[in-house]
Structure formats: structure tokens, C-alpha cells
Amino acid sequence: MRLAMNLYGMRAIYMYEMARTGRTLLQSIVSPVISTSLYFVVFGAAIGSRISHIEGVPYGAFIVPGLIMLMLLTQSVMNASFGIYFPRFVGTIYEILSAPVSPFEIVVGYVGAAATKSIALGLIILATSELFVPVRIAHPAWMLTFLVLTALSFSLLGFILGLWADGFEKLQIVPLLIITPLTFLGGTFYSTSVLPQPWRTVTLFNPLVYLISGFRWSFFNIADVHVGVSVAMTLLFLAICLAIVWWFFKTGYRLKN
């Protein structure tokens, strides 16, 4: 009876995490949708009345990919980090540690669930945006690819954060103090090409610029950086996160004494 994989174990974690979303529906779905709507009212209506188009795209539509990314990134990190931090905090992690599940299966369960939620959320926000502005999607397959890759990478990042954090403050700090500012500075509401030098070059050190640019390209065929670079950066980011998670489990870091 030597199973190569504990599929039941992986599934149990995934289902358990998905069930948790059901309970926190307000927090995980409703509140991001409300804040997106607020962004539309403030940015789309207020600013959009002054800036009509960016690179030929109506301003209201132009901010849609950036907004989806903003929500996708913060929610992926928050969801995934909480998912693993909470059992560590209350001690129920003992069961995961004593179960015949491999690190890979644990990561698939937790990160898969967090990414699923984020992808669903991204699509819900897209649908919400349609209520405000007509959005056309030039490359739907690429749009979904970016959505999935980003959700995965940032859920992994959240998972890492949840393993590393030793208090609730740290759990809050990363999304609030790092992800959100970088997203804002990464061209959520504008094209980085409008920035004067040297700021334009500085933004190239912001990894989120590549994600937002690539995602926007899949909608409107316009990009701040070449889409190939965006894909490469996304995959690189994913690979780095995977390597860190692998190292955590290999050493038992913050998991086992």
C-alpha cells in the first residue's frame, strides 16, 4: 500500500480551505467588489472626466486590468497567508505535520485553494467592471493565463508570508505596505510611459509593472514593456516563490522544532 501521492489528503486541504471561504464570503468577495466599485466612481468618473483616453483606450476601461491586478495581488497574498498562518497560530497545524502528506501536496492544497478564490474574485471584478464601462478583451486566452499565473505566484508568496510571520502585524504589513504601494506605483491607474525620466527607469525595478503591463496588453494590445518580458518575469517570480517554499519544507523552517 505505497501510494505515490496522497490525493485524498491534497483534496481534503483544498476542500477545507474552500469551505473557509464560504464562511468568510463577506470579507473575501463582497468587500473587494465594493472597493472596486468605489475606485470606478472615484477614478473612472472623477478623473476620467478630465483624462478621456490613454493610448486610445477610454480611461474608465484602461484602469480595469490594473484594478483587477490590485485586487488579485492583495487578496491572493492575504488569503494564502492567513490560510497557513492561522493553523500555525492556533496549533491545529500539528495534524498537517503528522499526516502522511508531502510538502508538495500541502502547497497544492493551500495555494490551490487561495489561487482558486483569487481567480474567481478576478472574474467577478471583471464582471462588475462591465457594469461601469464596456471592456473588450483582445487576447482572452492570454488574459486567463496572466490571471492564473499571477494568482498562483502571489498565493505562493502569501503562503511564504504565512509561514514566515510570527505575528498578525507581519501578516498585514506585506500586503498593505508592499503590495498595495507597488501596485499603485506599477501603473494601475496610468501608463508608466507618461512618467518623466528617471522615474520611468525606476519603475522597471518594480516587478508588478511587468504583471500589470502584460495583463493590460491582453485586454487592449498596449503595453509598457514587451509582453514576452512580462511572461518571463511572471514565470521567474513563480520560480523564486517555489524555490523558497521548497527550502522552507526541506529545513522544516518555522514548522517543526
Binding site: I13, Y16, A19, E95
Partner: peptide
């Protein structure tokens, strides 16, 4: 936040 059967289902699944 779970019910006893729900948490037991998790345990059973985790152990394959």
C-alpha cells in the same frame, strides 16, 4: 469554526 464531522473529514482525508 468547524463542526465535529467537518474537522473529522479533514483528518480522514489527510491520512489518505
Amino acid at each position: 469554526f468547524e463542526t465535529p464531522p467537518a474537522t473529522m473529514r479533514l483528518s480522514r482525508g489527510l491520512f489518505g
